[in-house]
């Protein structure tokens, strides 16, 4: 994906990212349908970790390539990351509250 000019990727890059998103989603769905094979507790955690990693990878692909954060000013990335950080903090804090109280 080195053919990009100063600001935006080429159509070929967009198509490559689209294909990758398609494949990653197909892998996620395939994992769901073999869920019963993950019987033990540790293998279930492995499955959940795999699903979260695949989902995160798709998230990053869309944000970096389709939303152009890979090329745009770093200020935009910091704004978005700040929101994500606060969102993660809220989620963790509330999950802890519900878990223990």
């Amino acid at each position: 994906m080195a053919e990009e000019h100063a600001h935006h990727p080429s159509d070929r890059t967009y198509l490559k990212v689209g294909s990758l998103l398609f494949i990653l989603t197909a892998v996620e769905i395939a994992l769901y349908f073999v869920e019963d094979a993950f019987e033990s507790e540790w293998s279930l955690y492995l499955l959940i970790a795999a699903l979260i990693i695949l989902s995160s990878f798709k998230f990053i692909l869309v944000v970096m390539y389709y939303m152009h954060l890979k090329w745009d000013d770093r200020m935009f990335s910091w704004f978005f990351l700040a929101g994500m950080f606060v969102a993660a903090a809220i989620i963790l804090a509330m999950m802890a509250m519900y878990r223990y109280y």
């Binding site: 978005f80 929101g83 994500m84 969102a87 809220i90």
Partner: peptide, 10 residues
């Protein structure tokens, strides 16, 4: 979008 992250995150 950063604020919407918090909304959907919740």
């Amino acid at each position: 979008l950063a604020s919407d992250c918090m909304f959907f995150g919740s």
